[in-house]
């Protein structure tokens, strides 16, 4: 089956912001509000049958002048038809996008990582806390405006002084 993204555009025309097929990766950009609807359709429709949420990440478009600033990128895969589809949704800085935790269990950790590193919030996530970094960490390091070597050590030089235990 070819041209999944075009078929999807026909079906959900009003929710689709754009499609492209770069280097053979079929991609569709949709409105955040339609994400759950479309993801569920992709998962349950027998023609698509996207049973795997292979990857979830986000791209910070600060240096590219994107507005809204982020794009959350989903990679779906169907083990039955062995086809892949990429879905992208825009996300504003400080805004939030719907969570897919209700559809795929893996979305839980993927979204936590996305929040941890890029600060994209996910609505309806049951446990949105840091996963790779520690709670004391301030900021989101994978954002383009976070300097790469701004360290926030817990102990050792540069660590916040702990109050002496009385």
């Amino acid at each position: 089956m070819q041209e999944l993204h075009l078929k999807l555009k026909e079906k959900f025309g009003e929710d689709v912001l754009g499609v492209h097929n770069q280097h053979g990766d079929e991609t569709i950009v949709i409105k955040p509000a339609a994400l759950i609807k479309i993801a569920q359709f992709l998962r349950d429709d027998s023609e698509y049958d996207m049973d795997f949420l292979m990857d979830l990440s986000a791209v910070d478009g600060l240096k590219l002048g994107w507005n809204p600033r982020f794009q959350v990128v989903y990679h779906f895969f169907s083990s039955k038809h062995t086809h892949r589809l990429r879905i992208k949704i825009p996300a504003a800085d400080g805004g939030s996008v719907p969570s897919l935790t209700g559809l795929w269990a893996i979305a839980n950790w993927f979204e936590r990582e996305c929040w941890d590193l890029l600060g994209v919030k996910f609505d309806g996530h049951p446990n949105l806390k840091r996963i790779l970094l520690y709670e004391e960490f301030v900021g989101h390091p994978l954002r383009k405006d976070y300097p790469i070597n701004k360290r926030q050590p817990l102990i050792g030089p540069g660590a916040p002084k702990k109050e002496a235990v009385k």
Binding site: L133, P141, Y146, P147, N149, K150, R151, P153, G156
Partner: peptide, 12 residues
């Protein structure tokens, strides 16, 4: 040389 790595354990 980045935000997450200790720059030498002899700092600790």
């Amino acid at each position: 040389d980045n935000y997450s790595t200790v720059q030498g354990i002899d700092t600790i």
